[in-house]
Write a protein that binds this DNA or RNA. Sequence first.
RNA 1: GCGCCUGUAGCUCAGUCGGAUAGAGCACCUGCCUUCUAAGCAGGUUGUCGCUGGUUCGAUUCCAGCCAGGCGCGCCA
Length: 548
Amino acid sequence: MSSLADQLAASIQALVAAAINNGELSGTAPDSIVLERPKNRDHGDYATSIALQLAKAAGKNPREVATLLQSAIAALPGVSKVDIAGPGFINITLDRANQAELVRTILSNSAKYGHGDALNGVTVNLEFISANPTGPLHLGHTRWAAVGDALGRVLKAAGANVVQEFYINDRGRQMDLFGQSVQAAAQGLPIPEDGYQGEYIKDLAKEVVASNPGISTSEDFREAAYKVQLAQQQGVLNVFQTHFDIWFSERSLHESGAVEHGLDKLREQGHVFELDGAIWLRTTDFGDDKDRVLVKENGELTYFASDTAYYINKRERGADICIYMLGADHHGYIHRLRAVSACAGDNPDYNIHVLIGQLVKIMEGGEEVKLSKRAGTIITLEELVEKVGVDAARYTLIRYPVDTPMVMDIDVLRSNTNENPVYYVQYAHARIAAVLRNVAELKIPTGLENFDPSQLTHDRENELLGTLAEYPRIVASAAELREPHRVARYLEELAGVYHGFYADCRVLPLGDEAVGPIHSARANLCAATMQVIANGLSLLGVSAPERM
RNA sequence: GCGCCUGUAGCUCAGUCGGAUAGAGCACCUGCCUUCUAAGCAGGUUGUCGCUGGUUCGAUUCCAGCCAGGCGCGCCA
């Protein structure tokens, strides 16, 4: 499904190519042409600067080039007017009735409207959160829980086969400390130095002892507490509407021989060497600032060895693209992970993509809440949801690009005002639902057979249609750039445009006014808008309420 | 020292194939509900887009160098 703008852009591209072929223009035709939606409404429905770009090679001034293309563009189907403005911009105004056909497209595609095929046949492994199973998920994980899940939905909408995966670090020193900490708490002994101090350890200890009478060794405590803690994380993520297809255990990686297999594969590729009794991967061949140890002098595997094997494992399980979502404190991993990909014989520019999320600060009562494990002021995902609800938390976390540090203001998120954009968007949806309930009650005919696009000629209707038409491009770019926040920002714009339409364009008949085609047309336009808002919110994992 | 990220209105932040007069919300004023959800709409005020150069018809956007802030640089996990 290609949008009207895409079709138009392709047609114009063909016109340019033709002009060059028949000698009207010199130079080379661009592969594609960008049609943008002008900020200024006087500049038409779409605009392109193609004439300015072609001018130099053509040896003509930009306005001449634009003039050359003008009449041919005006003759394209659906175009009503073409103006040349400023230094040579081509401003295109669409035929309004033709544009309104979009309502049919949206309503007949319903939940599929906006989906694309850019990633058809591509399998994407999306790994995020990947916390240690040694405690509750906290704010640092929360951003990824929301953004990662939303990105997964966006990638699926672009046609990808997405595997959302959580890597459980259930092996190594942290797990042992965790077991010892729970054991100490259960036995009334002091928690070991470097151990886990939180109150939750005591709760875990009680629960473990209650369900495992006679438990005594730290290994048993570790295993029992691990199960409980992991289940707790899974439960919270479930409440947070964050789905994982695979919970991948680091232990299983070792037990299955995948680590050895990964090392073999790297050896075959010739980037492994020995030095000082250790086994190294020559990541400096591919941009890392130092080589990395895989097997220590004492024979133990490093954590890096697991990471490496895990990457290879993902690829062998069918992932074409492995996306990693890491916290800012792990940004040092970018180079080495990309180097791993290259060392395994892959193309790091395609097969691996590392996203780094900056930190989230939290404000409450006008003050920043300092997060400290020691002081016990860690905010967990569970607490955040209790405070502000799933929708507000998810939406707020998603609406900012991940590479900006963000501040969450708890008081704002709790408020039912415009400061809280999720309500602005949801309100538009609920408002439409209310209108459509009234439409049904008044028996205004709404089927597409009753839809007359030529009724929709008001500026507000035109603006709304134009915004609805943008949705597929937004989804496609969000997927391509791995930036789900674009969907949220778009929905805010769409909601605003709808509210403007609503203020100026009455949907229901007033007073004794007879029901006519205008009412049916607007009701369908409302339904189409509601569909797009619902589609967008579902990509964010945020509910679309019928009533508020 | 090296690397990643950030610097846009009083505050929180949008703005990637370089485009026309740089946007939104909040805050501060002014209007709009005896018929669709006022959690809304319309209007007003706010800017050396960190600084300096470069690339060109044109730069908040691309490049280089500075300045400021955050974070990271283990045979730790």
